[in-house]
């Protein structure tokens, strides 16, 4: 199994270590240019600044390649900025801004939904839909998934707001499983890769 991690910026090293622990044997490769996209079985889009990641992905000519492969069935896990990247609709809670995004998943994401860093938080979340009771995770200047339609479904909610959603092989989370003690999200993603 070969999992690529979009490694420009953000929590890419944390995702690599967490994926390695969740999968046992297999390869994890950083993805930065189109030639890194060959023969991947799955791809992870980490948390970071979505404006930065979008600018680099389009400047280095990889954004169309990723979109095409995801549309033809490549499983993808997007966390925080990664979720914004996947969403068909994305907006900021305050500032209007045009961004380079993939727009592949039937969800709407609102950036910086909970506020700035001072309002960032840790919380216990319910992951029973993917086989783990509870996990303590962090939300950092996190977005919210405000709408889920079509083939997308909500997998977990915190105080009524969707924090994890799935559409086929695409998973979006607004929290950070890569910074937590649980491997449940990564294991669930890898189970979709194997299918």
């Amino acid at each position: 199994m070969k999992i690529g991690i979009l490694a420009y910026q953000g929590s890419f090293e944390e995702h690599a270590l967490q994926t390695k622990r969740a999968m046992g044997t297999g390869d994890i490769v950083p993805v930065k240019t189109p030639k890194d996209m060959g023969q991947l079985d799955g791809i992870i889009i980490p948390g970071g600044e979505s404006t930065t990641i979008g600018m680099l992905a389009s400047k280095l000519g990889i954004i169309d390649e990723i979109r095409e492969q995801i549309l033809s069935g490549l499983p993808v896990l997007g966390t925080c900025a990664g979720a914004i990247f996947l969403a068909k609709e994305a907006s900021d809670s305050k500032v209007k801004k045009q961004q380079e995004l993939l727009k592949v998943m039937d969800i709407a994401a609102v950036r910086n939904y909970y506020g700035r860093q001072r309002e960032s938080f840790e919380a216990e979340v319910d992951l029973s839909e993917i086989g783990e009771e509870k996990a303590r995770v962090v939300f950092i200047r996190s977005p919210a998934i405000t709408k889920v339609w079509g083939n997308s479904k909500s997998l977990s909610k915190l105080n009524g707001v969707t924090i994890m959603a799935q559409e086929g092989g695409m998973i979006a989370t607004t929290f950070h499983p890569e910074l937590s003690n649980t491997l449940a999200v990564h294991k669930y993603f890898l189970s979709l890769v194997k299918k």
Binding site: A7, Y8, Q9, G10, S11, F12, E13, E14, G47, G48, E49, T52, C80, A81, Q117, S120, V138, I140, R141, H176, L179
Partner: peptide, 9 residues
């Protein structure tokens, strides 16, 4: 956790 999302930037 906040600075983790600045990494590489």
């Amino acid at each position: 956790a906040f600075p983790i999302f600045q990494k590489g930037g």
